[in-house]
Design a protein around this nucleic acid. Structure first.
Lengths: 179, 179, 179, 179
DNA sequence: GATGAATGAGAATTCATTCAT
DNA sequence: TATGAATGAATTCTCATTCAT
């Protein structure tokens, strides 16, 4: 195989890793899988990332940033004349609709963080950032934390049970927490 | 090596599998690990469980039952003269305190369910059972579902961020959802 | 490849490992090399020996036993009417002549033991056994230890410098130590 | 990354290689390890030394010189009014005490020489130089060679068995060889 | 029925060396 | 001249599963 000049390879490996994790889960991440997905030799992935953990963290950090950017875009687009509960319900509905893949990846991140030392700070940071974002709208930190908890729990529930999305029910519970 | 008469071997293998998953996570489950933990020959685990998935499901099913039994015990012990929010807050506090290991095992189940076809029904059933349990106290299903979501989300939040448990904050948000 | 019934495989792997170490040194021992030499699949070597260290120890233990058996055979064949120095000189000459391969392996064992935790006990035992053997002839332990040291040092010297064997010089120095 | 002006880099790489061999043995020598230890780019080690063998030889040659310088310092410091056996015993005691690291490095050289064509001349030269040094004190070459052998053998014995140093026993055997 | 042995695929890493810049 | 990137082979080890006994 000819040696290729490929200045963006590192980034391409990260992108490939995100696709692998998205497709097979964190448990499915392996040097081999990433190398195949990125179409680079196996040695290349270990050259750019000394350990699989390094690669995992790089990939999750990037996917995390994308996730938060999505939430932030929602926050900037919030219409102050509409009840916050409605806007939050719309967010949840969009997450469960369009971005199924990214949502699964995000919750995979949460749950994997329980076992994976190296991933935990990422998950914690993600939660804290979401709380900070919501706090801009709720004014109060305790409420923001409760909202993040409720939404996380409900999304997980929908992902796992496969139940049909119930807009009214979600809005009611969100509204009660907002108070 | 004498063939042992061991009528409970199947059960002992399941118990060992639960310990393995509890200790190393689902990713750490292997025939070898279970055989060593149960102190049975390697062949014995594949004899009693045709595939590793079978063993995983058996183990998670049992650990699930134990988890639900715990929640059920709490539910039976609920004092009707105490506000439900207080009793639920106590439950969360106990989970985060004494039962940390079992909580992690439960979230391990959730995580696995996201990717693993065979595990998803178990997780869904678990959530539905918890909803049914809470419904006995809330009367209303939507509220029960919201409570399960809130509690799952908050517990996850505490596990991941390592924040100190804040009893007042938890009780307030639970109380608001109960309405 | 058809599965073979091969009850002595474990022993054949050990024998192959000894040939590999003899041929390429301890540094050249690898699962692959042994598997090829023994004509068994790679997985077979790791099945029978959980780690490469285990295999190394098994191989060196056996080769050690052969080495000591050789020394013991010499000891039993010692002619009491001949000066011990002459008999020892004959031993050294034979070692450097016929058994070049085994001598190199033995000294490889000594020197590798300096770095390799797991090998050190074997080397120590070997030295102690040789001292015990010589003690039967010298009567005195200090002399036996000095003789083992002198002979080890001289053999190493001959191996490394490639100098021609000098029977008179060796016998003189051995005789002086015997006193 | 700025190209550094670093005229002593070649020497610094050699020094780093010695530290690596001293710390992890010859088996642990690698371009990467040396580059990290010397704090130079990976390419720098392959630029200054065409192959790893070249680097190994350069490192062992230098460490050899340091070793011989130590022996020579001892030789120059020998007090003619003290029995040579006493002075040699002191040398051995110091080697086993303070200079343990360098002794191990020296035996690492011997070990490598057994298998490594390119290293053997170094080991042979080292032994011959020690013999030449001792010859200045013994007058006679055969005795010098026997002394080098005895000392090498005894030091190895002490290193491997971990036995407590026995000054009297060592001096007695050395004295007998000196005659 | 029960089990130890067997097998091949795949895991993460390490690495010497080459080469484009 | 110097160096970071690239590559492919080799390393040890784990494992699910199959199968002969």
């Amino acid at each position: 195989m000819p040696r290729r000049y490929d200045p963006d390879r590192r980034q391409r490996i990260i992108d490939a890793a995100i696709r692998v994790v998205g497709g097979r889960g964190i448990a499915g991440l392996s040097h081999r899988a990433v190398a195949a997905e990125a179409d680079v030799p196996l040695g290349s992935t270990t050259y750019h990332f000394a350990s699989l953990d390094d690669l995992l963290v790089a990939a999750l950090r990037q996917s995390n940033a994308e996730w938060l950017a999505g939430i932030e875009a929602w926050e900037r687009g919030v219409d102050p004349s509409v009840p916050l509960a409605d806007e939050l319900t719309r967010l949840v509905e969009e997450l469960l609709g369009d971005d199924r893949a990214q949502v699964e990846l995000e919750y995979e991140l949460y749950l994997a963080a329980l076992r994976h030392e190296v991933v935990r700070p990422l998950a914690a940071e993600c939660i804290d950032d979401m709380v900070a974002l919501l706090r801009r709208r709720t004014g109060d930190e305790g409420t923001a934390r409760a909202l993040v908890g409720l939404i996380d729990g409900l999304v997980l529930q929908y992902l796992l049970t496969g139940r049909e999305f119930d807009r009214v029910e979600v809005r009611d519970s969100v509204a009660k927490v907002i108070g």
